[in-house]
């Protein structure tokens, strides 16, 4: 089944708010070899001008995961997850994420292309804080391998 081209017109509901916890930031930081003190020590983060520990640059992928599940759960999406490969990824920030942030992500499928039997689905998850201000947008391209590849 090919990827449904009408996904780009679809409106997705915002995800439930994700509360960024200090220990989650520390755990994720350890997993990506992020050893800078501001990721672990609230005092070091405050000295750098932040209210609490700062999440590493790729942390939003934890929150984007919820929007990916929304996309895969669309019954007519035509996306076979066992054939999905992550093609590229980008994070564009307005400000860093800190522990205590409550982030809501809204998914939008921005493009669907076919290339050599594969489909490339680009989507973005725009994340806003509790006051509705933009924090970061995660843009992912998934490559769905065709049946013959």
């Amino acid at each position: 089944m090919p990827v449904n081209p009408e996904l780009t017109d679809r409106a997705f509901a915002p995800t439930a708010p994700y509360l960024v916890g200090r220990e989650k930031v520390r755990e994720f930081s350890r997993a990506v070899f992020a050893t800078a003190p501001m990721h672990h020590d609230p005092e070091a983060a405050r000295a750098a001008g932040f209210s609490d520990v700062v999440a590493p640059p790729t942390f939003p992928i934890v929150i984007a995961e919820a929007t990916l599940q929304q996309l895969l759960a669309e019954p007519d999406a035509g996306i076979d997850f066992s054939r999905v490969v992550h093609g590229d990824q980008r994070f564009s920030y307005t400000r860093p994420i800190v522990a205590g942030d409550e982030l809501t992500a809204t998914l939008r499928v921005t493009s669907i292309k076919s290339l050599g039997g594969n489909s490339m689905v680009t989507s973005e998850s725009a994340m806003t804080d509790a006051s509705g201000e933009h924090v970061v947008t995660s843009v992912s391209t998934l490559v769905i391998r065709g049946d013959d590849s």
């Binding site: 990506v32 750098a48 640059p57 994070f91």
Partner: peptide, 28 residues
């Protein structure tokens, strides 16, 4: 995403709180 996650850490350490990563992209 693990590779993307740690590949930026040398930059974060070099910044040493003088700056922050405001945009980051890779192709796998």
């Amino acid at each position: 995403m693990l590779t993307m996650g740690f590949a930026v850490q040398p930059v974060v350490d070099w910044l040493d709180a003088r700056g922050w990563v405001s945009d980051y992209q890779v192709r796998f």
